[in-house]
């Protein structure tokens, strides 16, 4: 704090301070404003293309006849399957770390692993999916391989948010249960999990929502870009909405750019739906437990 020697300090200037505060505020608002303008632009373009035929058509070489059906259905299947795999695994791992692991060596190793995995770029998971699931385990470039890969990708987020939810349950609740002669699992299942359920669900939905927007690892896995059928099982090839959008963005014709905009509007709607669901669930449980 040598620089604050009163002898050399200039008298603080109110005007300068105001100007700086304004600059800081502008720095916070400008990106938001930009995003708003960009979103308005894409929504304006996209809505003009969005109709029933667009929703129910397969891709086509002619932009005005192309639709998102395969991508939309593929995204729903993929996200549903991913949730089915990632939620039990993620919640289980979080329960292990919070309720069982303590300071054990294994728990520590797992914790370090999870924080490292959370920093791995998503495209690297594509390599894992390609080599391990598609090739070595011979699942091919299937829905199942994609869902397993995405489940591993979102698992660190599910674990992180679930642990936070579990930590909101006071220690006294666990002690009360144990002192009544309940086992660790009985306390977890009948007290800790019900009490933290709203937090777990909210976090889980937000984690899964991240999977909706992912394209890179699925492209590396080898998900198709031109799909004119719906997945008919776990082994089926598939595409997802972001890959369909990516494909359209890459085409030179203006019509496809419009399709991409419409696809983006749908993607954002799906995200909005999931986020809304998370908020609704949180409020619903908050009302119920009050």
């Amino acid at each position: 704090m040598a620089g604050l020697d009163p002898g050399q300090a200039k008298p603080p200037s109110r005007a300068l301070e105001r100007a700086f505060a304004g600059l800081c505020l502008a720095a916070a608002l400008l990106p938001l404003l930009l995003l708003f303008v960009l979103l308005a632009d894409v929504v304006y373009d996209g809505l003009s293309r969005l109709d029933w035929a667009f929703l129910t058509s397969y891709p086509s070489r002619r932009p005005e006849r192309a639709g998102v059906l395969a991508g939309l259905v593929g995204s729903f299947y993929l996200v549903g399957l991913t949730a089915l795999i990632a939620l039990p695994l993620g919640v289980g791992a979080a329960v292990y770390l919070e309720e069982y692991g303590g300071r054990g060596r294994l728990a520590q190793i797992i914790e370090v692993n999870i924080s490292n995995l959370a920093g791995v770029p998503s495209i690297i998971y594509g390599l894992l999916g390609l080599e391990l699931f598609a090739r070595t385990l011979a699942m091919g470039r299937s829905l199942l391989a994609g869902a397993l890969m995405m489940a591993l990708l979102v698992m660190p987020i599910v674990i992180l948010s679930t642990r936070e939810a579990l930590r909101t349950v006071p220690l006294g609740m666990r002690e009360a249960g144990l002192a009544l002669g309940a086992t660790r699992w009985q306390v977890t299942r009948r007290i800790v999990l019900p009490m933290s359920l709203p937090g777990i669900l909210t976090g889980a939905i937000l984690a899964i929502a991240r999977a909706i927007g992912e394209a890179a690892p699925l492209i590396v896995l080898g998900a198709l870009t031109y799909v004119d059928f719906l997945p008919d099982g776990l082994r089926s090839a598939f595409t997802v909405l972001p890959i369909q959008i990516f494909n359209w963005i890459g085409r030179p014709q203006a019509g496809f750019k419009l399709n991409a905009a419409a696809g983006i509007v749908l993607l954002l709607l799906m995200l909005l739906l999931f986020n809304g669901l998370a908020i609704y669930l949180r409020n619903y449980f908050q009302r119920r437990t009050r």
């Binding site: 695994l89 993620g90 791992a93 329960v95 292990y96 069982y100 995995l117 391990l132 698992m155």
Partner: peptide
Amino acid sequence: LLLTACGVVSIVTTVAI
């Protein structure tokens, strides 16, 4: 053991990558 296995999945993922 089942819960531990869920946690171990993260180790397996790292090792697999």
